[in-house]
Design a protein around this nucleic acid. Structure first.
Lengths: 331, 331
DNA sequence: GTGAAAGCGCTAACAC
DNA sequence: GTGTTAGCGCTTTCAC
């Protein structure tokens, strides 16, 4: 079924059929009806690929995430998907698969390939180098999430503030020896780790850094023993998965949380409310970030001048059962 | 940068450039070199959209999932994404968003729109009606996951077997009154619920059905109280999230798991190993399912005659700490 | 308001 | 092996 079939059946030209599907108001009601019913009988719908070629835009958005199976990414993806759809865009998703480092080059290539099939791209904290990223941005409108790269519009969830709040919280509970469990070496981890160190220094508490660890539960299990060995009574983990692993392992070793050791996570993924005790954690507005990022991208596509800096979304420390007064104080 | 720019720069025709990028071996090494270096200098790469239109295929695959933020879906998505990429395909993902039922029609439409931009589609247990699904399959090669629809190739993880194993397990532990916590009314839930009922009858144990519940932790929390009220000592939940909610709530109420009540989940998502006690659950080979489904789709695209029935992947009961002997027996 | 014609960038016969 | 030609299905000036 092509546009021409519909045209002959409706007794009009192909151009008119095209208009009916693009700018219906530019066609008489009468002919519009004829065309529409012809299209209906023929079960015709415009071919998006042909349309893309002729129009020079695709109606698609692209999203690159480090690991779609990680809750954080999945939540952002969902939000992006919905916002995109509401705006009439379909979504390409590429899982860049952080872990298999050798594929990084492959990654850049696949991003580039995607670039030509979409009107704009969203990059979630990619492993890609700054230069590759900039090169990509020359090709196609780009918005970055969770990464600061000046010149590029982006949305940031200022982890540093969250880390500060977490350390202050633990300090207020009387903890004097804290451990930060570092995650993968990316933008977010650097921000969190730096803020952790600074705040410990400012408050005059011991702040040690352990890791880095994979951002997984199992890594947290391993980390727990190091925490105990290091004599820390308060822990800030790179993310909720690690924190949950710590909590689980401490419970297994009979080191009760929070009476013996307090644990704070990062992200506030669903997991944080699913374990016992429920996890005190820094809530990152992941869904908002996804939505806002799409909004920025849409603006970009509409030619709205991009705002100078990145959009910062507020983070918030959510206090739950995994943190309590330090053992020395309690005793 | 179009193919023509490269052609003039390399001093050849557009067709030759095209060949260099499509079937390089059909071009002299010498001209190939010239073309390639011209392309390089011009930073040319074939435009995928134009290529799609001319070739009649897109190099893209499409995936529709009910909720990408659900661990089960995310794992399948990841596997699909990787397998597709290895085969040189990019991936469209649509989150059909089960929960907002009013969007179902919208859903069909978006699936149809996607259909024309991909060479084939993977449908993960969609809410779509059988008829809509068949209509879609007329348009584009389709493989279904977790849904039996004869005529359509698909991959199934026979939940029923898992439910049988779970009930037998609980029965062997001495439980005589079991509850099944029903999930959303879909193919998987029907299979599990039916097998639960049948097996209870066969073994002569009481089998009651509670629900249906949303497939979430919070729903499980609510379900726990109903379980206790119903006097069941063994629970089989529609999925791990519900099961985890039950475990959490029972712990809060002082009804220890498994000494007071045993709980079995479904899926073996990461969560199952993250809670205390770790969850006995029916492992579904989600990643395999994704890979196999893509394999089937690729076969379909290559014209390999589809096998008659769906591919069945083995499920397995994983026994962990959340199940133990029934209280009556223990006492 | 509608049609004719040119073209989006590439591929695929078919000649040479 | 390479060039010529004719599209893929749609949009979009430009006339009328």
């Amino acid at each position: 079924m092509t546009i021409r079939d519909v045209a002959v059946r409706a007794g009009v030209s192909a151009a008119t059929v095209s208009r009916v599907f693009s700018r219906p108001e530019s066609v008489t009601l009468e002919t519009r009806r004829r065309v529409l019913s012809a299209a209906d009988e023929l079960r015709y719908a415009p071919h998006p690929v042909a349309r893309s070629l002729a129009r020079g835009n695709t109606g698609n958005l692209g999203l690159v995430v480090p690991d779609i199976a990680v809750a954080f990414c999945a939540v952002v993806t969902k939000a992006v998907s919905h916002r995109a759809r509401r705006a009439g865009y379909a979504l390409f998703v590429a899982d860049s698969d952080d872990r298999s480092a050798p594929l990084a080059a492959d990654d850049v290539r696949s991003a580039r390939a995607m670039a030509r099939q979409v009107d704009g791209m969203l990059l979630l904290s990619p492993t890609m180098s700054d230069d590759d990223l900039r090169a990509l941005a020359e090709t196609v409108p780009v918005v970055v999430v969770n990464r600061a790269l000046d010149g590029l519009p982006g949305v940031l969830m200022p982890s540093a503030q969250g880390a500060v709040a977490a350390v202050e919280h633990l300090h207020a509970l009387g903890h004097r020896r804290l451990a930060y469990l570092a995650g993968p070496d990316n933008y977010s981890n650097r921000a969190r780790q730096a803020a952790f160190g600074d705040t410990c220094r400012r408050l005059g508490v011991d702040g040690i850094v352990l890791g880095s660890f994979d951002p997984t539960f199992d890594a947290g299990v391993r980390a727990a023993d190091l925490v105990l060995a290091a004599g820390a009574t308060g822990v800030l983990a790179y993310n909720d998965d690690i924190a949950a692993g710590v909590v689980g392992r401490l419970a297994d070793r009979g080191a009760a949380v929070p009476s013996r050791c307090s644990v704070v996570g990062f992200d506030d993924t669903a997991l944080a409310s699913m374990i016992t005790p429920r996890l005190t954690t820094v809530r990152l507005p992941m869904a908002d970030a996804g939505e806002v990022a799409v909004g920025l991208l849409l603006d970009l596509l509409r030619g709205v001048p991009p705002r100078p800096g990145p959009v910062e979304l507020p983070v918030e420390l959510i206090v739950r059962g995994s943190t309590g007064t330090a053992p020395e104080v309690a005793a």
